[in-house]
Amino acid sequence: MIKATHKRLERINEMIAPHSEVLVLGCETCTGICLVGGEKEVARMAANLRLLNRKNGGKKTFTEGVVRRQCEMEFLDGAASLINDADAVVSLACGVGMQAIAEHFPNMPVYPGNNTAFLGLSPELGLFSERCVACGDCLIDRTGGLCPIARCAKHLFNGPCGGSVAGKCEVSPDVPCIWQMIVDRMMRLGQLSKLEDIKGIRNWKTNDAVGPRAYIREDLRSTPPKLDSVVMKPVAPKGGAA
């Protein structure tokens, strides 16, 4: 899921300087789950903003709200009156939720209360780590289910660089070398020979080479959608440079 962290309070305070009625709006999906967007975080953020505002002699009011998923227009509609009653929203969702507000409420300023960090998981309490970069053309079938694009500091496709030592990445002794993990896993899976094939130069169009991306599920639509992004087609299989 999407993982995020809080922005620093002073930064948020600067953003909302021109506004007097501020809604702190949380999201119960990704940022809720990574403990920066739920009801309690909203309460904490609002309380802190109130305290800061009072200390600075401000007269702002802060309201609190949460929606199930800030990235869904229908859920935002449910919070419409809360949003419209404010004159700015500090969103504790990810960048997607924040933009959903910006799009859905054209006249409402929305400010990020969070930094959207990455797509990852929480292997244990209090630890969040990256697993995927949403590159649009998953290749982990050839790498034992582990992603070298997201997890190799050099996004290498064809094996570890010369800096892999004792299972650690050259960038830090805390970071495991994903290629070591891939080799180990392929060995266990009896698929090591797969790594002998050269993964050819890749098509980055599915990633960020084309601007904002979109895809359409034709089976779910009868009318052509209003597009705001470039429609992605599945990547045609292509070998390495011959």
């Binding site: 094996g159 570890p160 892999s164 050269i198």
Partner: peptide
């Protein structure tokens, strides 16, 4: 191309060399 015979995984370094040659 460069190769580091001292990096890990040691056994895989030769595979990687072969890939470079093949490339």
């Amino acid at each position: 191309a460069a190769e580091n015979p001292f990096a890990d995984p040691f056994e895989f370094r030769v595979v990687r060399l072969a890939k470079k040659i093949k490339a």
